[in-house]
Amino acid sequence: MSLDENNQKSVDDRAGVPDEGLIDRVRNTTVGKSIIRSPRRITPRDRAAGHWASFLLHIYPVKIRKKELGFRYSWYLGVISTVLLGSLILSGLYLMFFYVPSPANAYADIQTIQTDVPFGQYVRNVHRWSAHLMVLAVAAHMGRVFFRGGYKAPRQFNWVIGVVLLILTLLLSFTGYLLPWDQLAFWAVTVGSEMAGYVPIIGDQVKEVLLGGPIVDSSTLLRFYVLHVAVLPAAIVFVLMIHLWRWRKDAMFDQEAVDADE
């Protein structure tokens, strides 16, 4: 069925629906049709169909329970965490253009970013503060979901996925902490990675795999950089997709609680 026939059919379905605003008239021109290729969505059924057909909306369910809309339900902490992740990916990509992960270059590159790169200082600030805020937002999201009982059946496993996301968030923040290669970065990572050394028997090996040697040096910087810009972002995006997928599948349905309606 061609698009035009499809349009015509939808129009026939709603005989008696009033048209036509300015937008409808623009939409019906040749140019308008080429820009907005779908019919006007009027009935709930139309709109659901439009939602299903939209690539950008496919991460959302078509409908959700009313009580999930309000601030009290979630404090919107999941959205906030996701938006911060987006902010981190965008600002991080920009910073990658100006940064070389070697002890000889890293620190000077940060100084160049702050003084010579257009908006460099601002973008670095966005990256740094978004990272701290994301750790806070993800932790708070976990707290809110706990008190709401959001991990109750049938959603147990999405909580587990959330724990994985919290750990990935911490690892991303920690690996990024080293990259400026200043005293703050160097010694915070030295202290942080000492904890890995306390694992019994294999502690030293774990630490050596993490740092690429017994102490924080150039191989640590390269290792943390690769983890920070490739491995961990890919992992967190992948796991986040599963997290959102499961949220989307469950969003229409109440949990199996006996006291939900009180």
């Binding site: 002890p103 620190y107 940060i110 100084q111 702050q114 200082q121 670095r124 600030n125 990256h127 740094r128 503060w129 400026p180 290669w181 200043d182 005293q183 703050l184 970065a185 160097f186 102490i215 924080v216 040096d217």
Partner: peptide, 11 residues
């Protein structure tokens, strides 16, 4: 607020 940057790392 600017992100902090201390002196270059010195083991």
């Amino acid at each position: 607020f600017d992100a902090p940057l201390r002196d270059v790392a010195n083991p």
